[in-house]
């Protein structure tokens, strides 16, 4: 199937499940492991990632297709994307801070973390590699963020329960067991492959 004809909704759904940026590409692992200790902060970070990826994906699409491609400067995509992401995280932070103090307090402290989250950059690079259209890139940004948020919320929920009920051998405590759980969740997500598969 030609990628241009895929409905954006399918791309959105695939980005959450079978193409989950965290569970299939293992991007954004550092903040994923660090913040997944409690559900509340991981939901905050997840929401912030959704926010940033949804906004930066279409902007990066525009930068790539309307600026870099016409001047044959595709090789500058990494630096261009990073600059765009950094600037927009700043702007979004300012806007949220002004508009809603409550949302700022939930997301605000996580926003600077996301600037260096490779999932956001990965999201921008994938939409170039996979040759998404503009609307598809919006759907993909939203989906990738949602997928990442879902994964971190799942891990945080499991870790919170394990804290109370499971006995983990000391050598595996913390990041070790988190990685093992992540692997198992990733395998579970492969179960979605039967429903939809987009590359």
């Amino acid at each position: 199937m030609d990628i241009q004809n895929v409905h954006p909704f399918i791309i959105f759904f695939a980005a959450i499940t079978t193409n989950n940026i965290l569970l299939t590409n293992f991007l954004g692992m550092c903040s994923f492991l660090a913040v997944s200790k409690d559900l509340k902060s991981s939901l905050g970070l997840g929401a912030a990632v959704i926010f940033v990826s949804t906004f930066t994906a279409p902007i990066n699409w525009l930068v790539y297709h309307k600026l870099l491609v016409p001047y044959e400067l595709e090789y500058l995509q990494y630096i261009a994307f990073i600059v765009v992401i950094a600037a927009f995280v700043q702007i979004i932070e300012m806007v949220i801070e002004r508009v809603s103090t409550l949302l700022y307090l939930t997301l605000g402290i996580f926003l600077p973390l996301i600037t260096v989250n490779c999932a956001i950059l990965g999201c921008a690079l994938f939409l170039v590699i996979r040759q998404y259209s503009f609307t598809q890139s919006i759907a993909y940004g939203l989906g990738a963020g949602t997928g990442w948020a879902l994964a971190i919320a799942a891990l945080a929920g499991i870790r919170a329960r394990m804290e109370k009920k499971s006995k983990v051998i000391p050598e595996l405590e913390g990041a070790g067991i988190a990685l093992v759980i992540t692997g198992i969740i990733a395998m579970a997500f492969i179960g979605f492959s039967g429903i939809v598969r987009i590359n």
Binding site: L67, Y71, L73, I79, A80, Q90, I91, E97, R98
Partner: peptide, 24 residues
């Protein structure tokens, strides 16, 4: 390459300044 990247950074900086003026 230098011009395009500078222009991009310039536009973003301008955006940041405008945002700062209005929001911060």
């Amino acid at each position: 390459a230098v011009l395009v990247l500078s222009a991009l950074s310039g536009v973003l900086t301008l955006l940041l300044l405008v945002a700062e003026f209005f929001f911060a």
